[in-house]
């Protein structure tokens, strides 16, 4: 099942190449011909949206860059080698993707060891879910060192408000992976917010079989949520659920349970009803903007706050909406990106 969004991205890529060429030509005429900036891009699991957004930003802005792309392929042991290479190449800036790469190359705390980490070269990070909790940066206003970056997770409170604005709810249903500590933390936070927002959380763990959460147990859990009068199914940004999104969302649809996803995929290429996310692509663009501020604007990374994109992407899966008959309010619909592969528009 090829997602419409991917087709779009490919189309966009092709067009971008043309646009970037044009922009470069303009740049040349304007007479700012300096050596391209060299950026070392360290990735965790290959080229994807954020990396593309990062690259496209420079192309759109007509900023000449030379990208040195390295993929760790989810292997932490390669990171020291990346650090050494970036240093030896004397690149202008380092881009790190994900928590593992960022921590592995940039270190944590106020004074990481210069021998083991990149400290002299400015760096930008993206797709780090908890930059403060992991010690990458002390707070979101300033890293206090030679790095800055972006966040990409929509705050839970914003997600809940989004659900509320679609349709008020009293009981929020959720299936979670009991082996994932983050899920438990998230449940606590949702419960706390539930007190203020006046709803109760009905959270059911997936069954654990052989020390692993069992995908097969998901439909039963969803049915139990429905029986418990849940108004909405909340799908957290969780790897287990992301992998098994088709099972989860199909079960919800079968139970006529509207679902909200805090990630792109369950809505875009599965059957979650709607979602609120920061798109990786936009996050990559914003990270590139910060990189450009460092490279072109002469700003110090420590003076650039760490923040998410200004605009939240609201995704609505119209076929699911139609089959549930739970229609989005006009206001939300006006702001949303509609996923509707059947519409011949």
């Amino acid at each position: 099942m090829m997602a419409r969004i991917l087709r779009r991205l490919i189309l966009a890529l092709a067009l971008l190449a043309v646009a970037a060429g044009g922009a470069r030509a303009d740049e040349g005429k304007a007479g700012a011909p300096h050596r391209p900036f060299r950026i070392y891009m360290a990735l965790w699991r290959g080229w994807e949206g954020a990396a593309q957004g990062f690259k496209d930003y420079f192309a759109n802005q007509g900023i000449p860059v030379e990208l040195i792309v390295r993929d760790a392929a989810q292997d932490p042991s390669r990171l020291p080698e990346f650090v050494a290479e970036a240093k030896s190449l004397h690149v202008d800036l380092v881009f790190t993707w994900g928590t593992s790469v960022s921590l592995g190359m940039l270190g944590s705390g106020p004074h990481p060891d210069p021998a083991k980490y990149i400290t002299d070269i400015p760096a930008v990070f993206a797709i780090v879910s908890q930059p403060v909790e992991t010690g990458l940066v002390p707070n979101y206003r300033s890293s206090g060192r030679n790095i800055t970056g972006t966040t990409y997770l929509v705050p839970v409170e914003t997600q809940l408000n989004l659900i509320e604005s679609y349709r008020p709810f009293k009981i929020l249903g959720m299936v979670y992976n009991p082996l994932e500590r983050n899920s438990l933390v998230a449940i606590d936070e949702i419960r706390r917010l539930g007190k203020a927002m006046d709803f109760t959380l009905l959270a059911l763990p997936a069954d654990v079989v052989d020390g692993k959460p069992s995908p097969a147990s998901i439909p039963a859990k969803v049915a139990a949520l429905k029986a418990g009068h849940a108004d909405f199914l909340y799908i957290p940004p969780d790897t287990f659920l992301n992998v098994n999104r088709d099972i989860l969302t199909a079960a919800a649809l079968e139970q006529k349970l509207p679902s909200f996803a805090a990630a792109e995929n369950p809505v875009v290429d599965s059957k979650a009803m709607f979602g609120g996310v920061y798109r990786y692509y936009t996050v990559g663009q914003l990270t590139a903007l910060k990189a450009a501020q460092i490279l072109m604007g002469g700003k110090k990374p420590a003076n650039i706050p760490i923040d998410p994109p200004k605009r939240l992407s609201i995704l609505i899966n119209m076929p699911v909406v139609r089959s549930l008959g739970v229609y989005p309010p006009m206001k939300l619909l006006g702001l949303a990106e509609v996923v509707d592969p059947t519409a011949a528009k």
């Binding site: 909406v321 008959g325 229609y327 309010p329 006009m330 939300l332």
Partner: peptide, 13 residues
Amino acid sequence: AVGLGIPLDKLVG
């Protein structure tokens, strides 16, 4: 909205 399949009388909000 109607084009997306929401009946006119079922529009929300």
